[in-house]
Each structure stands twice: as structure tokens, then as C-alpha cells.
Write a protein that binds this DNA or RNA. Structure first.
Length: 350
DNA sequence: GAGCTTTGTCATACT
DNA sequence: ACAGTATGACAAAGC
């Protein structure tokens, strides 16, 4: 993913401008967009996420109820488990165990059952021993180690690990083993077994990874039967597709995490806007209070024709564009000019 | 044994 | 036309 598009309205004020409106208590805002914060279900739609009660949220815009926290912990575990499948350097072929019985009964004609499905399953304990530095190293990334593989390092078109498809030249004869330890034989994929059964003189790694011209040269260099030729082409197609599927899944996860990132950022942005709204309302109340006091001050100095104080409830002040101020009776609507001079005169009367 | 996850494979559309 | 890529769907295997 080339970075998810910014989901924010273009007509919103810049954050610098927003920050100018804040007092010092709001300086804890981090620049937008936020760094990744996993605090919501990555699968939740934005509309769902934004429905939580505005009064229930903390200043940072995160849900504050215990239920939310518990839910978030669960989500973190889910995300963490997702990580295992995306660790760089993992090569499932390394640990794909042969189905011992299936292997012994395997024939080159390939039953339809064997044509479908995957070796499947999770990485065995042995795998941790084989790749101790890749497995479960949560200390690499502070805070969110399960995001290490994301890092938006899109190395999708990586070649197969050579160890995942050992060359037939180096292959040792398959022997049955009831041990869970990964033998050389268990590292062979079904296609490798098929190639071996048909005595294909190339390694699967070569078949899959060779550029098309060299691949064709390779096929032309050795006389192969139709069956062998067909298998080799299938192996190449399946190998390419396997890598494509791995990349596709990795991309999908990147998109998912990107969307989750957007949700987090939007939640914080929403929180910021709500805080600004509250601040603006506070300012409005303060201005109203000051205006009321000013009114009271002005009316305390005004007197009617008979020298009695004007009732603020019965008169209104009108501020003209030219700077003059008039006093209008609420009842009669007649305006009494209240210029600076007249105000002075009235002040003198006092 | 059901349910979930992971991964390989197939089919198909697209480049 | 062919090779390769992308991706949804499915199945197998392990947990």
C-alpha cells in the first residue's frame, strides 16, 4: 500500500491554525496524523467507532469505559496473533510436514484430493528453534511489536528462500519418521515430491524463480516427457501463485492496519474538535458575561429626562456603524441618541 | 469433534 | 498469445 489516502476533509483548518486557538493545556496534542495507536477493532467501521458517547471519552479521545478497555486488550491479542503469519523470513515450506501415509501412497498421477488444499497449520515448536531470532521477538518495537512487520516496508516481490525449496541435488532420500523433528524429507512440498516421482532433473526453486527465457532454455536443454513438462509448468505456476498469495495477504493486512490507523487518527481529531467546541462555548459564555456587565455599567450611568436611572430591561443599546451609540426603548422603539458628547452631558448631570 | 487459523491451490480477471 | 500478478474462494492441516 502506498500509504492510505488522507481521509480528512480538505476544507478543515490546518492544525497549526487549530493549535493557535488552544491554550497551553491543549499542547499535549501531537501533530496529525497520529502515530499508530491500536485502540479499536480494526474491523469496525468508522461510523461505528464514532458513535461512542462524547461525554464518556477521555481527553485523548479514547473510550474510557472498562468494557472498552477490556475489549481493546482482546483486540490487541488478536492483532498480535495476526503478526505471526506476517513475520519476515518465515518460510512455511520449511516446516510443512508430509502426511506420512499420504506420502507413501502418493502417486505421480496425483489424486484430486492432493491437488487441493494446503499443508496448513501453524508453525511448530521446532520452527522457533530454527529461527530463534525471528520468532516472538517482541522487544524490537517499543509499544507495538506486532506491528514490526508492517512498517510499510513493502517487500512483496521477494524471492523464495532457497531453504524452502531445497535443490534435488542436495535432497536426501525420504525416510519415515514419527519424530516431530523436521527432517530433510519433511521440508519437501508436494510439488517437490511430484517432481521427484517423475524424476524431473531441476530443483523446484529453479523452476519457479528462473526468468522466463532462462526457464524456457532450461526446458529445451533437457529432453522431457509431456508429463514432466506439464508438471514443471504446473510447479512454476503454483510457485508463482503461492508467492502472489502470500503477498496478497500481506497487502491485505497492511490495508487493514492502515485503516485502523486512520480510525485512530480520526478519533483523536474528533476529540480535538470536541475540545475546541467546548473551549469556544466557554469563550462565548465569558463574552456574554462581560457584555452583561458592560450593559449594567452603561445603564448605571444613564438617566432619563427626569433624571431617573434607565431600566436595562426597558432599553436597548444600538451600536451604529459610524461609531455612535443610541438607546432605544423596548416599548416605544424610539431611539435616543447617545453620542460621546451626550454621554458626557449626561455624566455631567450626575 | 467443532471452530479457528494458516497456507497452498484453483479459477478468473487483469496487466 | 503467453507469462505473470492479484485476489476471492475453497480445502487441508494443525491447534
Amino acid at each position: 500500500m502506498e500509504g492510505s489516502p488522507c481521509p480528512y476533509p480538505e476544507n478543515l483548518p490546518s492544525f497549526d491554525a487549530i493549535l493557535c486557538l488552544h491554550d497551553s493545556t491543549t499542547s499535549s496534542f501531537t501533530p496529525f496524523p497520529e502515530q499508530y495507536v491500536m485502540n479499536q477493532d480494526p474491523l469496525a467501521s468508522p461510523s461505528d467507532v464514532f458513535l461512542f458517547d462524547e461525554d464518556a471519552e477521555e481527553e485523548d479521545g479514547l473510550p474510557s469505559t472498562i468494557n472498552d478497555l477490556i475489549e481493546n486488550v482482546t483486540i490487541l491479542d488478536e492483532i498480535r496473533s495476526l503478526n505471526l503469519s506476517l513475520e519476515e523470513g518465515f518460510s512455511p515450506e520449511m516446516v510443512a510436514r508430509l502426511d506420512e501415509e499420504g506420502s507413501s501412497s502418493y502417486s505421480s498421477s496425483s489424486s484430486s484430493c492432493e491437488e487441493l488444499g494446503a499443508v496448513g497449520g501453524r508453525y511448530p515448536e521446532d520452527f522457533k528453534q530454527i529461527f530463534p531470532c525471528n520468532y516472538g521477538d517482541d522487544t524490537l518495537f517499543n509499544g507495538f511489536p506486532w506491528l514490526e512487520h508492517i512498517g510499510h516496508d513493502h517487500t512483496y516481490n521477494q524471492r523464495w528462500s532457497s531453504s524452502s525449496s531445497p535443490s534435488l541435488d542436495n535432497a536426501k532420500p525420504y525416510h519415515h519418521s514419527s519424530s516431530r523433528h523436521i527432517s530433510d524429507a519433511t521440508m519437501w512440498s508436494r510439488d517437490e515430491r511430484r517432481a521427484r516421482a517423475l524424476k524431473v532433473p531441476f530443483s523446484n526453486e529453479l523452476i519457479v524463480n528462473l526468468p522466463v527465457e532462462e526457464f524456457n532454455d532450461l526446458l529445451a536443454s533437457v529432453p522431457l516427457s509431456e508429463e514432466q513438462l506439464s508438471l514443471v509448468r504446473d510447479i512454476r505456476r503454483r510457485g508463482k501463485n503461492k508467492i502472489a498469495a502470500q503477498n496478497c495477504r500481506k497487502r491485505k493486512m497492511d490495508v487493514l492496519f492502515g485503516l485502523s490507523d486512520d480510525v485512530s487518527s480520526l478519533m483523536r481529531y474528533r476529540s480535538r474538535l470536541l475540545r475546541e467546541k467546548r473551549e469556544a462555548l466557554r469563550n462565548l459564555q465569558e463574552m456574554k458575561r462581560k457584555l452583561t456587565m458592560l450593559y449594567q455599567d452603561v445603564f448605571s450611568r444613564l438617566r432619563d429626562e427626569e433624571g431617573r436611572p434607565l431600566n436595562p430591561m426597558e432599553y436597548l443599546l444600538h451600536f451604529e456603524a459610524n461609531g455612535s451609540v443610541t438607546v432605544a426603548s423596548c416599548k416605544q422603539g424610539a431611539a435616543l441618541p447617545l453620542t460621546k458628547s451626550s454621554k458626557k452631558q449626561r455624566d455631567k448631570k450626575k
